[in-house]
Computed example of a mutant assay.
Amino acid sequence: MLLKDFYKVLESSKEEETFITKIYIEKSHSLYSGHFPDRPVTPGVILMHLFKEEAERRTSQNLGLIKASNVKFMAVVDPNTSDEVILETQITEEEGITKVKGIAKQNNALALKFNALYKAV
């Protein structure tokens, strides 16, 4: 886990080819004191990293990012608005490459959408 005590998984399920994971974000985490003190925002790179950790849990591998594409930040993830984020993750493995398509939502609003390629490290 990149940031100790930043989040915990509340629920996890699979619907067809998509893993649905509800996570709780600790809004008192020290990350938010610097990003930003008066208006906490979850950094986009942290949201992307949540998908890496989700893929690692699902594949039982340590993964390193090869490439991210179609990265679209659609809304701010504000821990004061809601301390829950939903991750919708599609994971496929082919020839040693783990492909991830991810969508993050907060309050049913799309916050992040991206594709990534990872390799076991």
Rank of each mutant, 00 (worst) to 15 (best):
A75W: 09
S33Y: 06
L65N: 02
E84F: 07
L87G: 04
L112P: 10
V121N: 15
M1W: 10
H29V: 00
Q90R: 15
P40N: 03
K4V: 01
I46T: 07
S30P: 07
D83K: 08
F6L: 05
K52R: 14
N108L: 14
P43I: 04
E16W: 06
E11T: 09
E17Q: 10
Y7I: 00
S33T: 10
I66Y: 00
E26R: 07
L63W: 02
Q106H: 11
A109D: 15
D83A: 05
D83E: 15
I97Y: 05
S60I: 03
N70V: 00
Y32F: 15
K14W: 03
T81Q: 14
K99V: 02
T42Q: 07
R39P: 13
S60Y: 05
I66F: 02
E53A: 03
T92G: 08
E88I: 02
K4H: 08
F36R: 04
S28Y: 02
K119W: 04
V121G: 13
S28G: 11
I86W: 03
E16F: 07
A68D: 06
A120D: 06
Y118R: 01
T21N: 12
L2C: 02
L3E: 01
V41H: 09
E17Y: 05
D38N: 14
F6G: 00
K99E: 12
V121H: 15
V41W: 10
K113F: 13
S82K: 03
L112V: 14
H49F: 05
S60Q: 10
E15T: 09
K113I: 08
S28E: 15
L10Y: 09
L47T: 12
M1Q: 11
V76Y: 11
K113A: 13
I46E: 04
S69P: 08
L50R: 02
I25N: 01
N80M: 11
L117M: 15
D38C: 04
A55Q: 01
A120N: 13
L2F: 14
D5Q: 11
V76T: 13
T89A: 07
Q106V: 07
T18G: 08
I91G: 08
L10C: 12
K67F: 06
I66M: 06
G44M: 03
A55K: 03
M1K: 10
Q90S: 09
L50I: 05
L47K: 11
A55E: 01
G102S: 14
P43N: 07
L112Y: 10
S28F: 07
M74S: 15
Q90L: 03
P40Q: 02
S13V: 06
K8D: 05
K105P: 12
G34C: 06
P43V: 03
E16A: 12
K52S: 04
N70I: 00
K22V: 10
S82E: 09
H29D: 00
Y32M: 02
S69R: 15
I23C: 04
F19R: 08
A55N: 05
K27N: 14
S60A: 12
T92Q: 06
D5C: 01
L3N: 02
